[in-house]
Simulated scan of single mutants.
Amino acid sequence: MMRNLVNGAVGGALATAVYSAMLMAADRAGLLEEPPPRRFARVALPGRGSRPRPGESVLSTIAHYAFGSSCGTVLGLLSAGQRVPVPIGTAYGLLVWHFGCRGLAPAIGAYPPLPKDRPGRQATLLAGHLLWGTALVLALNRLRAERAQLTTELAPRLREEVRRPVIPAPEPVSVR
Results as ranks from 00 to 15, higher is better:
Leu14Lys: 08
Glu171Trp: 14
Glu161Leu: 10
Arg144Gln: 11
Ser50Pro: 10
Val166Pro: 00
Arg3Phe: 03
Cys71Phe: 12
Pro52Met: 04
Thr61Asn: 04
Pro85Thr: 15
Arg176Gly: 15
Leu140Trp: 04
Ala169Pro: 11
Arg147Tyr: 12
Arg142Leu: 12
Val175Asn: 12
Leu5Pro: 06
Glu33Cys: 06
Thr73Glu: 01
Arg51Phe: 09
Gly8Ser: 04
Val74Met: 07
Ala123Pro: 00
Leu32Ser: 02
Phe99Ser: 12
Gly89Phe: 03
Ser50Ala: 15
Glu34Met: 09
Arg118His: 02
Ser60Trp: 01
Ser20Tyr: 06
Gly55Lys: 11
Pro112Ala: 08
Leu59Gly: 13
Ala17Trp: 03
Pro112Gln: 02
Gly68His: 00
Ala169Gly: 08
Pro165Ile: 05
Pro35Thr: 07
Ser57Leu: 01
Ala25Trp: 04
Leu125Cys: 10
Pro54Ile: 05
Lys116Met: 11
Gln82Phe: 08
Ala26Asp: 07
Pro87Val: 15
Pro106Tyr: 01
Leu154Thr: 03
Pro54Glu: 13
Lys116Gly: 04
Pro119Gly: 00
Val173Phe: 07
Ala29Arg: 10
Ser79Gly: 12
Glu171Pro: 08
Arg121Gly: 04
Ala169Glu: 10
Leu14Asp: 02
Lys116Tyr: 12
Pro156Asp: 04
Arg83Glu: 06
Pro54Gly: 15
Met1Tyr: 14
Ala107Pro: 12
Gly12Cys: 00
Ala145Cys: 07
Gly128Lys: 05
Thr151Gln: 00
Gly103His: 11
Gly55Asn: 06
Ala15Asp: 02
Ala135His: 06
Gly47Pro: 05
Gly11Tyr: 04
Gly30Leu: 01
Leu131Lys: 13
Cys71Trp: 07
Gly49Thr: 14
His129Thr: 08
Ile62Cys: 11
Ala135Trp: 05
Ala25Thr: 13
Arg39Lys: 13
Ala29Gly: 10
Leu130Ile: 14
Pro35Trp: 03
Leu131Glu: 14
Glu160Asn: 11
Arg83Leu: 02
Pro165Lys: 00
Arg159Thr: 04
Arg118Tyr: 01
Ala17Glu: 01
Ala107Thr: 14
Leu136Thr: 05
